[in-house]
Design a binder for these strands. Sequence first.
DNA 1: ACATTACAGTGAACGCCGTTCACAGTCAAC
DNA 2: GTTGACTGTGAACGGCGTTCACTGTAATGT
Lengths: 251, 251
Amino acid sequence: MAQRRPAAAEDAGSRPLWFIPPAGDEHRRPALTREHVVAEALAVIGAGGVDALSMRALATRLGVVPGALYRHVRNKEQLRDLVLDGVLAEVDCQVDHRLAWTERVKVLAHRLRTVLEKHPGIAGLLKTRDPLGPHSLALAEAFLAPLHAAGLPERETGLAFSLVYDYTLGFALSSPHSVNEQRVQDTETRNKLHAFLRSLPADRFPTLVALGEHVWLNNRDERFAAGLDTLVAGLETAAPRRRGGGRQPQR
Amino acid sequence: MAQRRPAAAEDAGSRPLWFIPPAGDEHRRPALTREHVVAEALAVIGAGGVDALSMRALATRLGVVPGALYRHVRNKEQLRDLVLDGVLAEVDCQVDHRLAWTERVKVLAHRLRTVLEKHPGIAGLLKTRDPLGPHSLALAEAFLAPLHAAGLPERETGLAFSLVYDYTLGFALSSPHSVNEQRVQDTETRNKLHAFLRSLPADRFPTLVALGEHVWLNNRDERFAAGLDTLVAGLETAAPRRRGGGRQPQR
DNA sequence: ACATTACAGTGAACGCCGTTCACAGTCAAC
DNA sequence: GTTGACTGTGAACGGCGTTCACTGTAATGT
C-alpha cells in the first residue's frame, strides 16, 4: 500500500500521530488474507470464465502487485484447488432420507450440476484434480449413503458412485459456454447445422441424416435428466429389491 | 531452413550448380505441409501431453521459426481442431452387424476410449469442441446406427447417443495422467489414502469410512466397463424387445 | 521503552507463451 | 526475363507464472 506511507512528513512536520487514517478507505480493506484471495479468484472466474483467472488479473483486482499473491498461495495450481473446494461447499448435501435411494442420488446429481454450471470451467478442474477437501468428502458421503442403502455390494457401490459422479462432471464440463453449446443455442446457427446434416451423403451417414436433428438439440436440461434416469435405471437392475432403501422404486 | 543456404560459397567457389543437394537429408524433408505440421503436433502431444503443445515447441521440432507455422494454420485453436480430427480418424468405426446392438455400442465405446487415452489430454479438447469433421461424423453414425436399430424412438436415440458419447469422453478425460489417477496408481500413496479415509470421523462419514477403500481403486478398466454395462442396461429398459437389432441381449 | 524479528507487499526481472509484420529468398507462370 | 505468389525469417509486442532482494510495518521479547 504505497499510498499509506507517511515517510518524511513524520520527521519534518509536527504532531506525530495526528493524521487520522482515512478510515473510510483503509479500514474497509481486509488486508489480503488467503480467504480473501480465494473469494476474489472465484469472482474473477465467475466474471470471465476459468481462463480469465490469471495471477496478474487477480492481483490487479486486489490492488496489489502480482508477486504479493505468493505470500498467501503457493502457486496458481494451489489457488485453483482452493477455489475448487470453495465451489463444492455450495452443494447442499442434505437430502430427505425418506426418499427412495434412486431419488436421493438424482437430487444430489442435479444439485451438483447446478453448482458446477454456475461457475463455468470449474468442472474441468475437478476432472483432473479431485480435491479430498472436506467438502468433496461430504459430497462423496452423500452419494455413497443412498447407493449403499440400496443394497449394492461394496465394490458395486464404489463403481456406482464413480459412474454417477463422473457422469455429472462430464456433463457439466461441456458447459453452455463451450463452442459446442453456443452453436446449438443460437437458432440461426442451429438451423445451418441441421441443414448441413441433411445435406450429408445418405449412403454413408444414413442414421445421421435421418435423425441428426434430434441429436444436436438445445436441450441440456432434458439431456441431463434423461441420461441420469437411464443411468439410475441401469443401477436398479443390479440392485436387489428390498424395502429398506425407501419406497419401492419400481416404475 | 537456414542450413540450406549456399551463400558466399557460391561466389568464391566454382561449379554453380554442381553440388547435388544432400538427398539423404533434404530430400526426406517434406517442406512443411499442413499435414506434416498436424502430424508433428500430435507427436508433441503424445510425448508431453496436451499442455506441451506450444507453437514454439512445435516450430523448434520442425526446425522452423514460430511464425512460419501461421502459413499453414490460422492459429493454435485451429491447429488443435485439426489434431483432434486426426485422432478421431484412428477410431475404427466398423463393427460386425450381427452382434447385438448393445454389444455394438460397447465395442465402439471401448475403441473410442482406447484411442482417446492413447493421446492424453485430447479428450479435454473434444469436450469443448466437437469438430463436425468427417471422422467425428463417421463416429456419430456408428453409434447412432445400433441405437436406432434397437428400436428406440428418434428422440431417445439422440439422447442415448449423447449419453454414451459423453460418458466415454468424460471417463477418458480423467486420464491415467491426471493427479487423481497418479495418486491411486502408486501403491504407497494409495495406502496412505486408504489410511486417511479410515481415520475420518465415522459419525460424519460413515459410508466413506466403511467402503472408501472400494471407491478409490486402481481399476480404470473395470470402472469403465462396469459403468458402460450399467449404462447400456439402463438403455435396454427403455428399448422395446424385438429380434431386429441382433440377438436377444438378455443376460 | 527499546531492539529484534517476522512478515506482507514492492518493483524489477527471467523465461515462457501466442501472434503479427516487414522483409528476403525461391519457384512457377506468363 | 520479368512478374507475382508464396514460404520461411527475424524481430518485436503484450501477456503470462514465478522468483527475489528490498522495504516498511507491526508484533514480540526484554
